[in-house]
């Protein structure tokens, strides 16, 4: 996957979470994914806490992008 593709995917995923296009993701946005992704509310909470590196309760594109890179470079997508 090229760098541009990663950036594009990051934006796509971010927008899937930030459906109101606020420019950030909050816990409520994350919980909305409960019905769409096979993750429990608790797991989504964990994901949010893991991605929210400064712990301010808002996920920015930068934080989201860092988490995605970590995932990509830590584990290969099959």
């Amino acid at each position: 996957m090229g760098q541009n593709t990663i950036l594009e995917k990051t934006r796509e995923f971010f927008q899937m979470c930030d459906i109101e296009n606020k420019g950030f993701i909050n816990r409520r946005d994350m919980q909305r994914l409960n019905g769409e992704l096979p993750l429990s509310a608790e797991e989504l909470e964990n994901v949010f806490d893991t991605l929210d590196s400064d712990g301010n309760g808002f996920l920015t594109l930068d934080e989201f992008s860092s988490g995605f890179s970590e995932f990509l470079f830590g584990r290969k997508i099959s």
């Binding site: 995917k9 992704l37 993750l39 964990n46 893991t50 988490g67 995932f71 997508i77």
Partner: peptide
């Protein structure tokens, strides 16, 4: 570092989350 600790503990959950997003996007089951 609490973030590192949380990151390690939730690595599987994070992978699950992004894999789910990828599956959703591509329409794979």
């Amino acid at each position: 570092d609490p973030n590192m600790k949380a990151g390690a503990a939730n690595e599987g959950v994070l992978a699950n989350f992004f894999n789910s997003l990828l599956s959703k996007k591509t329409g794979a089951p």
